[in-house]
Amino acid sequence: MSPDSRHLLEVDQLSTTFATPHGLLPAVSEVSFTLQEDETIGIVGESGSGKTVLARTIMGLQPMTNIQVEGSVLINGFQVVGASDPEKRKHWGTDVAMVFQDPMTSLNPVMRIGKQIDETLRVRLGMSRQSAKARAIELLTLVGIPSSTERYDAFPGELSGGMRQRVVIATALACSPKLLLADEPTTGLDVTIQAQILNLLGELQQRLHMSVVLITHDLGVVATRTSRLIVMYAGRVVEIGETRDIFAHHRMPYTRALLDSSPRISNPSHTRLLAIPGRPPNLLNLPNGCSFAPRCSFATDQCHNERPPLTPSSEPGHSFACWNPLPISTRSEMS
């Protein structure tokens, strides 16, 4: 982390609250982090951890009704929170773009894939029909779609899941965004295809000098492909730091629980996983103290009553939210 490098993305005390018929639902609470140019950060969490809502809030995709967003999101100097739709439209595509989990629903099924990329190019960049088509084919080639000239006229339904996700990535890259938000980009794809897509994202990140936020539930996806990592639980950041530090010197018991309960290929067969009891809390009815306390074997009275703040650990940039952190340098030997 050189101090002179710019922060492309600055998220400060960001909270997203939904008003539901059953009460206020704090999907994201007081999330702060920064991302530099050319950096890839990972966000991991289970379902209900708020990672997807966080991505959509950063993108500015939330509907205006029944939702309250507090804090600030600066992308390349543009304040997303409170921006109007026309302002956001100018900023989408060129500053930030997003790749969604389900490539089938993020593509229009009755529109040829080339046209879907064309449209963006012509509307946003004012390209002519010919040059837009040429650029679209170039983009399809860039994301590794074989015989892209012919595929330009294909409908999304004629492509496999992996190919569709490549098209989605090409659409996202159309206006050369500085920041790419990838929300579970490989969930639902086969392992060999997942590896192809992740490799592609890594290559594109380096080639196009993008910053990437990689959101996933799978620790395996972020382990080798991100430089920093955020662990979320019940809408809050519970641990943040360099990816290596998080894996090797995690302090938050939840991070350890996630690591311990992931099955590994390197384990001998019939390895018993260290499962933690319970499940993520109901966001409508969060405990007063630490949200993880009810499932945590180290929890004390303080954990149940007082919410732990993010506390710096010994490594630079590594913080955790826990009253009774694991001792430093306890790589869990149990797994």
Binding site: P277, G278, R279, N282, N285, R295
Partner: peptide
């Protein structure tokens, strides 16, 4: 094994 069955009023 105990499971925290926080069955909410769905």
């Amino acid at each position: 094994m105990t499971d925290l069955l926080a069955v909410e009023p769905l």
